[in-house]
Design a protein around this nucleic acid. Structure first.
Length: 423
RNA sequence: GGAGAAAUGGCAGAGCGGUUGAAUGCACUAGUCUUGAAAACUAGCAUACUGAAAGGUAUCGGGGGUUCGAAUCCCUCUUUCUCCGCCA
């Protein structure tokens, strides 16, 4: 959520930046600002009336003490109309604040200056490409065929147990999955992230804190009886650790990593996009989260990009980094880099990581602040990234490393898998 | 799931209808003293809105009510603790 003083001071810039998202929010913004004027005026007159009432109450108290009950009764009469008036003003104030809040919730984050204007992922800017192109001198199989052939993943039994999008990992498939999780967590630890294991169900306040609610409600599984949401990403519980917290400057940077399963309803997807591991309702992911001083958050973003690159380099995957255009940029993000690995048998790029700087957008909802050197509280910046999402890494590893009689495991994983080849 | 108790500032802990935004202690920050440190002493030390400032307003788990006036009384929700039951 954007801060009103920020919007007020940067009205034109904000409106202009939203055009990167192909949004014209001039009307919404002006309405928010006008409501703010109303809010102030109402607040002021209410405060004035309340102050008046407080004064009278004090006088009445004093009069009673000195035994002048009659004089007190006269004053009591005066408080009546004052109270009525302040009650009306209170109701009006609540109405204004609610209207303002609703409009504010509709505003996405302001894209960073370097975010390209655009509509879809076709307008994203590829900023880096790494790794070697994989070619085959035999007929390469997509990962779902490999998974079946070597008994790595059972999609059908997952359908029986839960439904489509809930695969069962078996044999070396299960071991490879666990190996990858441990490898990712170790990499994060080496990069200075401290590991947490957060809850997998979160309450409504947490959903609002990181911005999944109110606008992306349908994307999460909701446990109605207890009013809890299954996490769509570890970002939600991990970032919410710092909800309603006031940090010291010396606490920066806060770096957390965490492995969790992620649950997404993904309504309305179809076709080749959802084949095999490409898109699931439940998947595993190692997430990295940073809380940073505003002046250092873009430095942190670059660190995170390097961290993810390092992992993909070690796995020997061909990948590219895309700077997301305004239209593809998430609601809460100011700047996002997507990582895509090339899946050599499907012949397509698969998104495996998304690294974002939310600046103060989440922090504002979270009330995540710090005391600056002048002793004033200021919003911190939050960032997060996948490092990494498992299924598509698994898909690319299987496809890209297949040989005629099996699949080779990247060397860096040997200590984790304890086997070197799937056959 | 059943029964009971409780929720106050960073922490501990008073207050239970009227200069209480809140005693006191600890922690923290600055200063005095000291060669330095400790100790001692002095001062400061919640958040938000509003105002040029002085100041004003709100907040003692959340919401609502009683009252001229609520941290203090009532209702309700939430959470925590203790005992019983169940259980990985």
């Amino acid at each position: 959520m954007l801060q009103i003083p920020y919007i007020k001071e940067n009205r034109d810039l904000v409106i202009e930046r939203f055009t990167k998202r192909n949004l014209d929010l001039t009307k919404t913004i002006d309405e928010i600002l006008s409501l703010d004027e109303q809010r102030k005026a109402t607040q002021q007159s209410m405060d004035h009336d309340l102050a008046e009432g407080n004064k009278l109450a004090k006088q009445i108290g004093d009069l009673y003490k000195s035994g002048k009950a009659e004089e007190a009764n006269v004053l009591k009469e005066q408080t009546k109309s004052l109270k009525e008036k302040s009650n009306e003003e209170k109701a009006k104030l609540q109405e204004i604040e609610e209207a303002q809040q609703n409009l504010l919730y509709q505003l996405p984050n302001v894209p960073n200056e370097i975010v390209p204007k655009g509509n879809t992922d076709a307008d994203n800017k590829i900023v880096e490409e790494h790794g070697n192109v994989v070619t085959f001198d035999f007929e390469a199989l997509p990962h779902w065929d490999l998974a079946k052939q070597y008994g790595l993943i059972d999609f059908e039994v997952g359908v029986k147990i839960s439904g489509a999008g809930f695969p069962v990992y078996t044999g070396k498939g299960a071991k490879l999955q666990r190996a990858l999780i441990n490898f990712f967590l170790d990499e994060a630890e080496n990069a200075g992230y401290s590991e947490v294991i957060p809850p997998h169900l979160v309450n409504e306040a947490s959903g609002y804190g990181t911005g999944q609610l109110p606008d992306k409600e349908g994307q999460m599984y909701h446990v109605g009886v207890d009013d809890l949401y299954l996490i769509p990403t570890a970002e939600v519980p991990i970032t919410n650790i710092y909800r309603d917290v006031i940090l010291k400057e010396s606490d920066f940077p806060i770096k957390n990593s965490g492995y969790t399963p992620c649950f997404r309803r993904e309504a309305g997807s179809y076709g080749k996009d959802v084949r095999g591991l490409n898109r699931l309702h439940q998947f595993d992911k190692v997430e990295i989260v940073q809380i940073q001083h505003p002046s250092k958050s873009y430095e942190a973003l670059n660190d995170m990009v390097k961290h993810v690159s390092g992992i993909l380099d070690k796995l020997g995957l061909q990948y590219r980094i895309a700077l997301l255009c305004g239209g593809d940029l998430g609601f809460t993000s100011a700047l996002t880099y997507d990582f895509e690995v090339y899946s050599a048998a499907q012949n397509r790029w698969l998104e495996v990581s998304s690294v974002s700087n939310f600046e103060a957008f989440q922090a504002n909802r979270l009330k995540l602040r710090f005391k600056n050197t002048e002793g004033k509280t200021e919003l911190a910046h939050t960032l997060n990234g996948s490092a990494l999402a498992l299924p598509r890494i698994m898909a690319a590893l299987l496809e890209n490393n297949q040989v005629e009689d099996g699949v080779n495991i990247p060397e860096v994983l040997f200590p984790y898998t304890k086997f070197q080849k799937i056959d």
